[in-house]
Amino acid sequence: MARVLLIDDDVELVEMLKEYLEQDGFTVHAAHDGQQGLVAALTGHFDIAVLDVMMPKVDGVDTLRRLRRDSQMPVLMLTAKGDDMDRILGLELGADDYVPKPCTPRELSARLRAILRRARPAQEDSDAPSHLVAGPLEMWPEQRRAQWSGTPVELTSTEFNLLEVLLRNAGKTVSKNELSEKALGRPLARFDRNVDVHMSSLRQKLGVLPDGRSCIQTVHRQGYLLLKA
């Protein structure tokens, strides 16, 4: 039973979401401001956090920024509908995905399950390699571990999923829609910049190749490609 930390100052909304999620098989704990939510998140007692952007005391963006200093737990942001700046900033700070408000409990539940499913070690086929390598990049999918030139790379669950898809297809272009479906668990929506923002973050976290290039290349109007070496 997945443990969800719901951080939002809208008490009525929280109660509605909490009731639905509990009926849908989750264990839910609520916090009504960023400071309380941050303390609860850092206990390590939860599998995922749902974090509202607009809150008193400490807002969602600052809460996420502080959380990412010490934790890589999956985070789903609740953002104002149409507010692209909050969404992009949240993703840049390490949020795994976002849901615009108002959202239905059913949609929230589906997004949570998609993130959690991909945050856990995958049960790969026996023929699938358990150790992936492309140049200085190495990955152990079952251990959810990656390193660059022998140095561990700290990745969010979504960043790990995206990088794994690229690494399994090293040398081939992978479309944004395929990346979204395999890493986020949903088709790419129109004007959705989620994949692009995560790719930018991955480039910053990974080192560069001997020739100075990033190992992740953008293929115009097609998608992304991970160089083999």
Score class of each variant (00 low, 15 high):
Met55Arg: 06
Ala80Tyr: 00
Leu78Met: 15
Asp59Leu: 00
His29Leu: 14
Leu38Glu: 10
Asp59Glu: 03
Leu38Trp: 00
Gly34Asp: 07
Val53Arg: 02
Leu17Thr: 07
Ile48Glu: 02
Arg65Phe: 01
Lys57Ala: 13
Lys81Arg: 14
Leu76Pro: 04
Pro56Tyr: 01
Pro56Val: 02
Arg69Leu: 09
Ala80Pro: 01
Glu15Tyr: 01
Lys18Val: 04
Arg69Val: 07
His32Leu: 10
Met16Ala: 13
Met54Ala: 11
Gly34Trp: 09
Phe46Gln: 03
Ala31Ser: 13
Val14Thr: 13
Val39Ala: 14
Leu64Met: 10
Ala49His: 06
Leu67Gly: 00
Gln36Ile: 06
Gly25His: 12
Leu78His: 02
Asp83Ala: 04
Pro74Leu: 05
Leu51Ala: 10
Ala30Leu: 08
Asp83Tyr: 03
Arg66Ala: 09
Tyr20His: 12
Arg66Pro: 01
Ala30Glu: 09
Leu42Gln: 14
Gln72Asn: 12
His29Ser: 14
Leu17Arg: 04
Leu64Pro: 04
Lys18Asp: 08
Gln23Thr: 10
Arg68Asp: 03
Val14Ile: 05
Glu12His: 03
Arg68Cys: 05
Tyr20Arg: 03
Val14Leu: 02
Thr27Val: 13
Glu19Gln: 10
His29Ala: 15
Glu12Met: 11
Glu12Thr: 11
Ala49Leu: 12
Val58Trp: 03
Phe26His: 11
Leu76Thr: 05
Leu42Val: 06
Gly34Glu: 07
Gln36Asp: 14
Gln72Arg: 12
His32Asn: 15
Asp47Leu: 06
Pro74Val: 04
Ala49Asn: 10
Met77Glu: 05
Met73Gln: 10
Asp62Lys: 10
Leu17Met: 12
Val39Arg: 13
Thr63Phe: 06
Val61Tyr: 00
Val28Lys: 04
His32Cys: 08
Leu51Met: 10
His32Phe: 15
Asp33Lys: 07
Leu38Phe: 01
Gln35Phe: 11
Leu21Thr: 01
Ala41Met: 06
Glu19Trp: 05
Phe26Leu: 02
Val58Ile: 13
Ala30Trp: 02
Ile48Trp: 00
Gln36Cys: 09
Gly37Trp: 05
Pro56Cys: 08
Arg69Lys: 14
Ala40Leu: 14
Thr43Ile: 02
Ala41Asp: 09
Arg68Ile: 03
Asp33Leu: 00
Met77Pro: 03
Pro74Met: 02
Gly37Ile: 02
His32Asp: 07
Asp62Ala: 13
His32Glu: 09
Val75Cys: 02
Arg68Met: 07
Met55Gln: 04
Pro74Tyr: 05
Pro74Asn: 06
Val53Gly: 01
Ile48Gly: 03
Gln36Phe: 02
Met55Lys: 02
Ala41Trp: 07
Asp70Pro: 00
Leu78Trp: 00
Glu19Val: 11
Leu76Cys: 09
Met16Ser: 14
Val50Glu: 08
Glu15Leu: 13
Val28Asp: 01
Gly25Gln: 11
Asp70Ser: 14
Val58Met: 15
Leu67Ile: 00
Gln36Trp: 02
Glu22Asn: 09
Asp47Thr: 03
Val11Glu: 15
Arg65Glu: 11
Arg69Met: 10
Glu19Leu: 12
Leu21Glu: 06
Asp47Gln: 08
Met55Tyr: 09
Gly44Ile: 05
Arg69Gln: 14
Ile48Leu: 09
His29Glu: 15
Asp52Ser: 06
Lys18Arg: 15
Met54Cys: 10
Val14Tyr: 01
Leu17Pro: 11
Leu13Ala: 08
Val28Met: 12
Ala49Thr: 11
Leu64Asp: 09
Asp47Pro: 04
Val53Ile: 14
Phe26Val: 04
